[in-house]
Design a protein around this nucleic acid. Structure first.
Length: 503
RNA sequence: GGUCCAUUCGUCUAUCGGUUAGGACGCCAGAUUUUCAUUCUGGAAAGAGGGGUUCGAUUCCCCUAUGGACUACCA
């Protein structure tokens, strides 16, 4: 074990919204870094000018910010390794590509994409490697004069990594153990493209991780097959490689395969942290934030998809997670995404949140419904109904009757709860209520129950009709908590309205 | 096709050779409640198949099956 300082990076490429699986990768990197007193770096890997999507970088930063995943260095922050955007590091990569060329570890290839396509359709399983490279047009097969002439007349070329065949490359993965791959199955990967003067992912990644002194590379399993290539690249440069940890993938909830944007659209749940509008198509994809998720709930839920603390604890704050996280408790197999469990986490976090904070989140929703109410009152109402909701926005459905008198009465409930004697009893109840001085829940309950008992009425019948009249249907918190909040006048008015309307 | 990785209730998972295979979500039932929820209690529900190794395998090894990832001048 090297005594290197822990430094990890999250290195997304700005090709669209940040996928929830990417968020989990960022989270695990963050947890690992913070647990070890290390640094977390944000690097933007925009070496593919073709796939660049405007706004994606800002989206990624805003998403991680919302979730509370903080960076010590990187795009938008700066640091000793700046710039952290790969498109701004052209000169650096050029220098290292040249170094590989000079050392004979890489070569220049002139084959056009068309030529390669033709080759691939001609030869089954064609691979550009030690067995085929001499048949191609490159600096190994061509004379020095030919190569110089081609470059001089501006022919576009790529630089390929010269992989020595038949060598077992061992990747020591922190999650999977030793993974051995024979170098013969690797092709001579393109490292650099003269067309846009940019390296490909593989080269840029290795150079940057080295220059930024990254100690641990924690990334998705889709990178495992190219890990040996990276190991070989570190060797070619004679650099110390970081430790690798390849995380299992997040899978679709139904069927099989990697979770994708489409699954979210199809099954009706977000796969992105924030709402995302595709600048090309104008399509809008929903986000966890806009769907009413609390960032703590998303973090907690995601943390447990592929990792567990080894005990039965499920509710964990970011701080808990930082303390408890460990790479060797990460599972090896992909986790299917269970949206129902995500909802449950949100429910739990809503219960933990104090009413004042929930009220602040609820206010805009109230406004949408044309309701203006004092914060103190909203807080009290939230205290009464929050245990019944999974999302802040559901608060309206559970509490609208506090703000607006029922305009209609649920038919089924009316049929069942509104008895022949109800109109008379409710009219009597109006008088009873009118006579109450202290309209607190406790006192009102005492008085009303006293009246019911005195008259020999059936408690359930009276209360159910009472609820129907005040709420409009058969739901809601304790009746007298409702009446004390809406007040005597409103309660009586609603009773009278009900007597007049319910048949 | 090739290479690599994986495989415990429907789902997320615990188990580091000996357990009535545990927990959670979801589901079902019951209790509580003046309603609806919440909550509580209980229940159904799992080691892919086949070989080994071992006194003993969910656990270690091999094979098969299944799933996944990768196989671009994308990341």
């Amino acid at each position: 074990m090297s005594a290197r300082k822990v430094r990890v990076r999250f290195a997304p490429s700005p090709t669209g919204a940040l996928h929830i699986g990417g968020v989990r990768t960022a989270l695990y990197n963050y947890l690992f870094a913070k647990q070890n007193g290390g640094d977390m770096i944000l690097r933007i890997e925009d070496t593919d000018s073709q796939r660049f999507v405007p706004g994606a970088e800002e989206y990624i930063i805003e998403s991680l910010n919302w979730l509370g995943i903080k960076f010590d260095e990187g795009v938008g922050i700066g640091g000793p390794g700046a710039p952290y955007r790969q498109s701004e590091r052209r000169d650096i990569y050029k220098k290292y590509v040249q170094q590989l060329l000079d050392a004979g570890r890489a070569y220049i290839a002139f084959d056009t994409p068309e030529e390669l396509d033709a080759k691939r359709s001609d030869v089954a399983n064609f691979q550009y490697d030690a067995s085929t490279r001499m048949e191609m047009r490159n600096s190994l097969s061509l004379s020095k004069e030919e190569v110089d002439a081609l470059i001089a007349n501006g022919t576009q070329y790529v630089v390929r990594f010269k992989i020595e065949p038949n060598e077992d490359v061992i990747v020591n993965d922190l999650i999977r153990g030793e993974v051995t791959i024979n170098s013969s199955i690797l092709d001579d990967k393109v490292l650099y493209k003269s067309a846009d003067e940019l390296p490909t992912y593989h080269l840029a990644n290795i150079v940057d991780d080295h220059l930024m002194d990254i100690s641990h590379v924690i990334r998705g399993e889709e990178w495992l097959p190219s890990a040996p290539l990276h190991v070989l690249l570190y060797r070619a440069f004679d650099w110390e490689a970081p430790r690798f940890a390849h995380l299992p993938l997040l899978l679709k909830p139904d069927g099989n395969g990697k979770l994708s944007k489409r699954d979210g659209d199809r099954l009706g749940f977000p796969v992105f942290p924030l709402e995302w509008k595709d600048p090309k198509t104008g399509d809008i994809s929903s986000g966890y934030r806009e769907s009413g998720y609390l960032p703590e709930a998303v973090i907690n839920f995601l943390a447990l998809l592929g990792w567990n603390p080894g005990n039965d604890q499920e509710i964990m704050s970011m701080e808990d997670l930082i303390n408890m996280f460990s790479l060797d408790r990460c599972s090896k197999s992909g986790a299917k995404f269970d949206y129902e469990k995500g909802k449950w986490f949100n429910h739990k976090y809503i219960q933990q949140k104090d009413n004042a904070e929930l009220a602040r989140m609820f206010m805009p929703i109230l406004k949408e419904h044309g309701v203006e109410a004092p914060a103190a009152q909203v807080e009290q109402i939230i205290g009464l109904v929050k245990e019944r909701v999974n999302f802040v926005k559901e608060l309206w459905g559970q509490s609208s009757f506090f703000f607006i008198a029922p305009v209609q009465y649920d038919e089924k409930t009316a049929k069942k709860r509104w008895k022949a004697e109800s109109p008379e009893q409710m009219t009597e109840l109006c008088d009873v209520l009118a006579g109450i001085e202290d309209f607190s829940a406790e006192n009102t309950e005492t008085v009303v129950k006293g009246w019911i008992e005195e008259k020999g009425y059936h408690l359930g019948n009276v209360m159910n009709a009472f609820r129907l009249a005040v709420v409009g249907e058969s739901k809601g918190p304790h009746m007298f908590d409702i009446t004390s909040l809406i007040g005597k006048e409103e309660t009586i008015a609603r009773l009278k309205q009900a007597v007049a309307s319910i048949k």
